[in-house]
Amino acid sequence: MAGAAGGVGPRSTPAAPPSGRRDAEASKAAIVRAARHLLARHAHGDITLKAVAERAGVSAPLILKYFGNKDALFSQVMSFEADAEGFLDAPVGDLGRHMVHQLLTGQAERGADPILRIVFAPLHGAQGDILRANFRAQVAQRLGARLSGPDAGLRAELAVGMLLGLGVMYGIARGPHLRAAELTEITDRYAPAVQAFLTPG
Rank of each mutant, 00 (worst) to 15 (best):
R142T: 15
R179M: 10
F80D: 06
A191Y: 11
D129H: 02
L143C: 14
L95P: 03
H101E: 13
L178T: 09
R110K: 11
R142W: 10
L123I: 08
F120Y: 04
R155F: 15
A152R: 08
I186V: 15
M99C: 10
L147H: 08
L131R: 04
L103S: 01
L123S: 04
R189A: 15
G161S: 11
L95G: 02
L163G: 01
P61K: 05
L166F: 03
F87R: 00
V92C: 06
M169K: 00
A82I: 14
R97I: 15
H177G: 13
R155E: 12
D113K: 00
A137V: 05
K65T: 12
G96M: 11
I186N: 00
D188G: 05
E109H: 03
E182V: 05
G165H: 10
K70M: 05
Q127Y: 13
I63Y: 03
R136S: 14
Q127S: 07
R97K: 10
P176F: 04
A133P: 01
A108S: 08
F135V: 04
V77N: 04
V168H: 00
G153C: 08
H98D: 09
G68V: 14
H124R: 02
A126R: 11
A137Q: 11
A181S: 13
R174M: 10
A181C: 08
F74Y: 12
Y170K: 00
V139H: 09
V168F: 02
G86A: 13
G144N: 13
H177Q: 14
M169R: 03
R132K: 13
A84V: 10
I130A: 02
M78R: 12
G175M: 03
N69Q: 03
A82K: 07
F67G: 05
K70Y: 06
G171Q: 05
L164N: 06
D89E: 06
V119Q: 04
R179Y: 11
L62W: 13
A133Y: 00
L104T: 02
L116T: 12
Q138V: 14
G167D: 07
Q138D: 06
R97H: 12
S75C: 13
Q102M: 11
G111C: 05
D188Y: 03
P114D: 07
I118A: 01
H101K: 02
M169I: 09
P192Y: 02
I118L: 09
T187H: 01
F67Y: 14
L164H: 10
A173G: 01
D129S: 08
M162E: 14
A126D: 14
D188W: 02
E182D: 14
G144F: 10
F80P: 00
M78G: 11
D113L: 00
H177Y: 14
A82C: 13
L183I: 15
A145Y: 04
G144D: 15
I186F: 03
L103R: 00
S75D: 15
Q138M: 05
V168K: 00
Q127C: 07
I115N: 00
V100I: 13
Y66G: 01
D83M: 07
P114T: 06
E182R: 05
L166M: 10
L62R: 06
G149P: 05
P114K: 04
Y170W: 13
A193H: 11
L143T: 08
P192G: 06
A181T: 08
D151L: 09
A133H: 04
